[in-house]
Design a protein around this nucleic acid. Structure first.
Lengths: 250, 250
DNA sequence: CCAAAAGTGTTCATTCTACACCCATGG
DNA sequence: CCATGGGTGTAGAATGAACACTTTTGG
């Protein structure tokens, strides 16, 4: 896109209208609106990002986020889930939107927006190397990311930051675990994402004192040590407490 | 838009493609991508939202958020600022994006997305009733909102929730105050947004202990009581602390 | 000297931190 | 009976809440 000459003027003078530009409306918006997914995965206390290698220009051969155009009558969240399922084969994972990206120069082929999404999965259970994308999907350590295509590096950075802040101040962590989980699993997840170690005793007290877990009175089985107690998240209780001004912390 | 018959199928079966629908791509995306602004304002310890009365169908005569189509080569943030300036006359206020909205039925005229933005201003200083929008702009108490056009009620709710959570856990509050401010002004802002009262002594200690304010060694002038000390936010110090793992709280 | 708001000190209760210790299971 | 991780108790430090108090200005 060469028509950048008047960009500055367009974006500073609210009365300025370039008719050549206006004629391009159709062309620009024919590109549609994609979603790009930051699929985070953990394995052995490391946070990884699922990347693909682009098969086409622009940025051919470079790492990028998995994404796709939204279909004309497709819900945004559903488009994101479709992409996630395509790469990982997973259907039921949690998925949140970050924001809409639309810098003018983010795509060299024209005006293309994109909607950022993120999710988090347990790599051991859902290895994407069993799907259609097999030949081009890679797990890359989140602290050793190469430069990504488009503005995808920024999208990843934003997603990780948002997830970290959410996990501290909202009970999002429970969406990331199986329905029944042990406090040790929960602690592991927090330590992984916040990159911090917690004292076992203090961690359990802090979590339990918030009073949003249901003690299932059920035990782990088949482990060669004292079996752990299983809990589940009491979302209806949480909603009640929240309505009264309570807010989950840490 | 009558073609809703196949919507469900489209959104559950990832291989299903309706060619009639695909032909409508151009039409749908010609609507472009608007921004809608949740302009929050405070006055006498009350939080208000700036609404307009729609002059056209759909939802003619109903309250709605001020918004406008993004121009083909306009930056998203800049479009939001353009709208804010149109309604309030203000140029330099802070402004953050919430997310992209795109439910299929959010606009009865077709497939229209919108990008949510929010900002917060001091009503006393910037009364919008001096701008072009004069005849149709209203400040409405945030806890007594009528039902709004489109999905604007949801957009407002999301924006307020995000602002509240941000002000608790990040130093966003300083973007909302003048460069030089007193601790009392800061406290007032927190009390307003969180709808909670704080003990003066404890509040100041909490803020000052975070060590991100610069004491300007300067005093308020012309007040008929002991003049307050002026402070400013030390953003470079904050960035340094943040990089070391510190996070601002409350 | 009064009103009004700025700004400080102190006490007591609560919570947090660190660390030592006991418990239940499989092999 | 040992290794392994689950789970608890507690002392001392740090933090927080409540409230009384002092200070500085204009009128």
């Amino acid at each position: 896109m060469q028509k950048t000459k008047n960009l500055e003027k367009l974006n500073t003078d609210s009365k300025f209208v370039d008719t050549d530009f206006e004629k391009d409306v159709e062309k620009f918006f024919q590109f549609g609106l994609p979603v790009d997914c930051v699929v985070l995965g953990y394995k052995e206390h490391t946070l990884k990002v699922l990347l693909i290698k682009r098969g086409e220009d622009p940025f051919k051969g470079q790492f990028a986020l998995p994404g796709d155009l939204m279909r004309p009558l497709e819900n945004i969240d559903i488009a994101a889930r479709r992409v996630l399922k395509g790469v990982t084969g997973m259907d039921n994972s949690f998925m949140h939107q970050t924001k809409l990206y639309g810098e003018l120069d983010r795509d060299p082929t024209g005006r293309v927006f994109t909607t950022g999404y993120y999710s988090l999965i347990d790599i051991a259970k859902h290895d994407p190397r069993t799907t259609a994308w097999t030949d081009k999907a890679y797990w890359v350590n989140s602290d050793k990311l190469p430069e990504l295509a488009f503005d995808h590096s920024i999208i990843v950075k934003d997603a990780i930051e948002i997830l970290k802040s959410k996990i501290r101040h909202t009970p999002i962590s429970f969406e990331l675990l199986p329905k029944k989980f042990t406090l040790a699993q929960l602690q592991e997840l927090y330590e992984l994402l916040l990159n911090e170690n917690f004292d076992k005793a203090n961690f359990r007290r802090r979590i339990l004192s918030q009073d949003v877990l249901i003690d299932l009175e059920e035990m782990q089985k088949g482990v060669s040590h004292r079996p752990a107690r299983l809990y589940s998240f009491d979302s209806s209780r949480y909603e009640k407490l929240k309505a009264k001004g309570f807010s989950f912390e840490l």
